[in-house]
């Protein structure tokens, strides 16, 4: 019982840091996945006076990943109210050409602007419809979401840092007496602090193991998976190898730092 209490406070502090870190990673991944999703539905339409070669358009900007020429048939058919075929063919020839451009990734407003400028520098392109208004709203929403999550993650980080700092003081008190006595009998620093490092490493391992279990569970939780599929994205919630290594690394580094601070801050009392 006593030993559980010894570990609990640092484990909880470490866990909350690991938790906020992983949440941040998941949000980042979701945003990327969502942007990937958006890019397939986002396109830029250009209107040109004459037929353009695809290479010419590709050359305008690196972001362009695909080009589709839009046939004017639809438009023409709608106009087709009693026109004769010859006139329609003529109309088709004189009508401007429409191209639909797909992009490699979901662009930022700046990228849209420069893309538009690049395209317009081609003198035959008369108009570029970039749907910037709708795009802007979506993009800003994403930015807002990311900002909110970042603020959330950072505030958790600050709170837990304070928590850990307080923990550090408690540890300092708790371990000072023993370290002092060991020093009075000539124990070298490494021996004096061995218990401390062992404790902190064990706590780091416990925290990572709990985080591992938690995220493994969450990543297979039907309710959560359903949320993501509702949004229409599939996100890796927890990578049991890479993410775990990251979690483990962070908690080990944090707790060893904590222990080192205590050892460095320890002064022999007289």
């Amino acid at each position: 019982m006593k030993s559980i209490k010894n570990h609990l406070s640092l484990v909880i502090a470490l866990l909350s840091i690991l938790f906020s870190m992983q949440i941040f990673i998941i949000v980042d991944r979701s945003l990327d996945a969502y942007k990937q999703n958006l890019v397939t539905s986002y396109s830029v339409i250009i209107v040109s006076q004459k037929r353009l070669s695809k290479d010419d358009i590709f050359a305008a900007n690196k972001m362009i990943s695909d080009i589709k020429e839009l046939t004017p048939d639809n438009v023409v058919n709608r106009l087709n109210t009693g026109m004769d075929k010859k006139n329609i063919d003529f109309l088709k020839l004189t009508l401007p050409k429409f191209y639909k451009l797909s992009l490699e990734h979901y662009p930022s407003p700046k990228e849209i602007e420069s893309l538009t400028k690049d395209l317009l520098s081609n003198s035959s392109i008369k108009k570029v419809e970039n749907f910037s208004h709708t795009h802007d709203i979506t993009y800003k929403l994403l930015l807002l979401f990311k900002a909110v999550v970042s603020v959330f993650a950072i505030s958790i980080l600050i709170v837990t840092s304070l928590l850990i700092f307080k923990e550090l003081k408690i540890w300092q008190l708790k371990h000072a007496e023993r370290m002092n006595i060991m020093g009075l009998f000539g124990a070298p620093v490494w021996l004096r602090s061995a218990v401390l490092f062992r404790l902190s490493i064990v706590d780091a391992l416990i925290a990572s193991a709990i985080a591992f279990g938690l995220f493994e569970y969450l990543s297979s939780n039907a309710l959560i998976l359903e949320q993501f599929s509702n949004i229409g994205i599939s996100v890796m919630i927890f990578d049991p190898l890479n993410d775990f290594i990251l979690l483990l690394g962070v908690s080990l580094v944090l707790s060893i730092l904590l222990a080192s601070f205590i050892v460095l801050g320890h002064k022999e009392e007289v």
Binding site: G183, F185, G186, A187, P188
Partner: peptide
């Protein structure tokens, strides 16, 4: 280091 060495031979 020397002090630690000395203390290892003292009983207090």
């Amino acid at each position: 280091k020397k002090l630690n060495f000395l203390r290892r031979h003292i009983g207090i």
